[in-house]
Design a protein around this nucleic acid. Sequence first.
DNA 1: TGATTGACATAAAGAAAGCTTATGGAACAC
DNA 2: GTGTTCCATAAGCTTTCTTTATGTCAATCA
Lengths: 297, 297
Amino acid sequence: MSITLKGLRAFAMVQRYGSFTRAAALLNITQPALTVQIRQLEAGVGLRLLERTPRGAEPTAAGRELARSLEPLLQDLDHAIASLRDLAARRRGLVRLAVLPSVAASLLPGAIARMRASHPELGVRVHEAVTGQVYEMVRSEEVDFGIATDLRPGGALSLEPLFRDQILALLPPSHALARMQSIPLQKLATERLLLLESDSSIRRLVDDAFASAGHIVAPAQEAVHMGTLVGMARTGLGIAMIPSSAAEITMAPELAARPVSRPGIHRVVSLIRRSDRSLPPAAEALVEALRNSLAGA
Amino acid sequence: MSITLKGLRAFAMVQRYGSFTRAAALLNITQPALTVQIRQLEAGVGLRLLERTPRGAEPTAAGRELARSLEPLLQDLDHAIASLRDLAARRRGLVRLAVLPSVAASLLPGAIARMRASHPELGVRVHEAVTGQVYEMVRSEEVDFGIATDLRPGGALSLEPLFRDQILALLPPSHALARMQSIPLQKLATERLLLLESDSSIRRLVDDAFASAGHIVAPAQEAVHMGTLVGMARTGLGIAMIPSSAAEITMAPELAARPVSRPGIHRVVSLIRRSDRSLPPAAEALVEALRNSLAGA
DNA sequence: TGATTGACATAAAGAAAGCTTATGGAACAC
DNA sequence: GTGTTCCATAAGCTTTCTTTATGTCAATCA
């Protein structure tokens, strides 16, 4: 005879309320069903646990002993289950993700705010990292998912494109090129360029684009932060090239932002996750928020 | 979706061994059955608890969290159940009983020894008491059962006759009456009698027998303990009247023991229990031992 | 005292779950 | 590429559970 959780809960209920009928009502089953449950539990332990009296039931010595150990046990179990359900309902949890600095500064804040609105209890831990690191952190499960450029890498990672980023040239409105709607790559090759340092994926993207067009890039200035580039551009040091997703653009409303053309410089920013892992509910919530942000919903 | 103990145990097993197949084998079910169990558990909490990998399964973050709280919980439960089964198997437990002093000194020791032989772990707590007290202690559940004379009392007590005790006259072999096989009551009325004090049920029994025959008893000596009466008889102070069940008889092999006749003096000694309570297993063991002792088995 | 009430037990039948066998698909190794 | 190892799925059967209907017993009330 097997001991079931249902049987134990039934016993706890009867022992607590001193009545089969009453306990059955509270358990939403009929009294005969409960009688059978208790009988099976008693058969399971090999003992009579409840004495049936003319006006109810009361525990035997063994029943009292069981109740004493059972009650905190059931409580702990219920607590553990409730706690898991909180995770499922996104009332609790932590999203860990690795994103490109540009995304961390632009797309992400809005998405987090959006997630907070519907799931205020969820925590977020953001790691800023360059593309290679993002992949590595996803692979090692240091983060639940990542956002980086599309590298189509080895390993069991799955990619889902989020948006297409294009590189913009940021230059003073007074600059001759500012009159064009978009600036051909070739025109930029001879300008004083303000570029990120070469370990960033954006710099590599720009370098590659120029290289493909037969140019070798010799930046007038390099910097680690895009904000620095914007500052430089504002003081007339040259033309800053930054991705359209970068929030730093808004830091310089007096500068003109023009897409690069012929060829345009693009990168696809994707959501990266291990294909053999499902997303925790909290992460799922943030991904939803990200997608909604991108859809403009 | 309901969460079952079986499902939780199944989860614990898979999480511990990292494999459905292996866990299923250990649980003595087939792998598909286990798959279904886990699926139902996951549906129950609303979360994926195990990631299925090409060569096994490993817990998700939620799964690890559950395992952490679940494992001690299952252990406690198993312990509690094992503990109850110990009670059922009579490997543990305490018998509380109230018995007449004469029974405590004669029948009981053998029965306890007999019980010890088969169930060495059981404890016994014996209360010696006169009949009225025995009934009261059974009624108030101070003891599991009692042994006393049959009073056919009120209340929800059930009686089961154990044996018939007869009153013996203990006298020196040289005494004239010692030549008779049994001694008529009337002959005793004029002898120097050694009787228990008047609050004992045996004394009352003797008094009643004499009274019914039209005699008034004037004992030569009274005593609280039967051993005292035996000692007095041995020194020739008179004829001691004690129940046949009394172990004290064996203390005086040199005295003659003769049943009283015309009429004989009997009492029925019964096992007394609440009819609305079942006996705990330990008590059951002692009752069995008692019955076996009486049956001479 | 006898009817009534309240409480648990039992029985039978229909509903629901659980298990097993058989089969499928994916990843990995050689 | 073939075989192996896992887990998932499907179908059919068995077992268990639950409900409805009824029984029994003891306490209560008239």
